[in-house]
Design a protein around this nucleic acid. Structure first.
Lengths: 213, 213
DNA sequence: GTCTATAATTTGATAGAC
DNA sequence: GTCTATCAAATTATAGAC
């Protein structure tokens, strides 16, 4: 007997179709560049229905932006809190998890950072509240401090180290079009690079900071 | 006697005023988000005069974008070609020069990478031609290869290493608003970090790759 | 819920006086 | 060269039929 359910699942409901379409368009073109018409076309509906589901472009954007930012600092906290893992295992786990996330959604980092960069106001500032990230920040910094005291890593500025980790994992997804054009590597080659990159980056970091007598 | 010249110099000619204003607005808001009215206001003129000097928004954008991309891979080639410098001196010179450039124009990296990210078409693709960057690319990669052969640095994938260098120098200027919000550091503290960063990054890289028996 | 038609607003661009 | 006034097109948003 034919499984009807599967067909229905593929043809998701309208709200989900709109959200998918909106993400595709807005992630790619940004808020200012995205057109409601493009989103409607992508979803296979018309503009009126778009406004029926989401009152305005602003509301639609806020919803998408909020969800996207939620992914920016995900499992970091739990990884750095885990007492089972030494500092090197933490770094490896972070890079694997972080880069893996962006391989699945390579447009998200540029979208979030760009929108926040060009609209520090606009009612999205609260999503990056200092207090909200206090736990993560403190877990990471204290892990570095502890490892340094234990002479597992050399003395190093923890803020720069944190920034280095984020830079190495995040930037390739923001600079990929330019990097591809400049180096001349293909999309396929770039994907391969990203697959290696979690390992490459964590070893690069560890080689730099591990304690040597 | 009063020096009239100085006053005139401060009050630059209209074309330059427009270009300055356009950069300020477009770097910050991006092409799609920038408004001709905003640029006119910023320059202290009106829209009509804007179109008198630059035929269209597109022309204005192309001019600004072209100039900005010219700064993306600047002195890299000469640094990596210089036979006076060993690989470590090259890396230090690169970081110092590269980060110094962005400290003066912190909006440029995000602008260039974002526009190229969201408009791989639009007649700006040719500015990132593979052939154009061939010399730079080959200088850098061959410098790494040579240093590796001479056992000055450990064996390492040169493409990842190149990407690491760019990531560490460029990302902080793209992620600065989020980084400031998440860490809670002030603008002044962030500027201080960036002043240390050329040294911090080059030592971070060198510690990671220098050959050890 | 979904559509067509249309309103309302924004915005890039031009005409023409000075 | 610079301005005011205005146009034409694009774009968000709504009204109302089905």
């Amino acid at each position: 007997m034919v499984n009807k359910k599967k067909i229905v699942e593929v043809d998701e409901n309208t709200e989900e179709r709109i959200l998918s379409a909106a993400k595709k368009v807005i992630f790619s073109k940004g808020y200012a560049g995205a057109r409601m018409q493009d989103i409607a076309d992508e979803a296979g509906i018309n503009k009126a229905l778009l406004h029926y589901y989401f009152r305005s472009k602003d509301k639609l954007f806020e919803m998408i932006f909020k969800e996207a930012t939620g992914k920016l600092m995900p499992q970091i906290s739990s990884i750095f809190r885990d007492p089972q893992l030494d500092i090197f295992a933490k770094i490896r786990a972070f890079c694997r998890s972080y880069i893996g996330t962006w391989m699945e959604q390579p447009y998200v980092p540029m979208f979030v950072l760009y929108e926040f960069h060009s609209n520090p106001n606009k009612g999205i500032a609260h999503l990056f509240d200092k207090e909200k990230f206090k736990p993560i920040r403190e877990e990471v910094l204290s892990a570095f401090g502890t490892a340094s005291k234990k002479k597992q890593i050399r003395p190093v500025d923890p803020y720069h180290l944190f920034l280095n980790m984020i830079s190495l994992c995040l930037f390739p997804f923001m600079g990929s079009p330019v990097f591809k054009a400049v180096t001349g590597i293909s999309d396929k080659q770039f994907d391969l690079m990203m697959q290696q990159r979690a390992h490459e980056v964590s070893e690069f970091i560890i080689e730099s900071i591990k304690y040597r007598k």
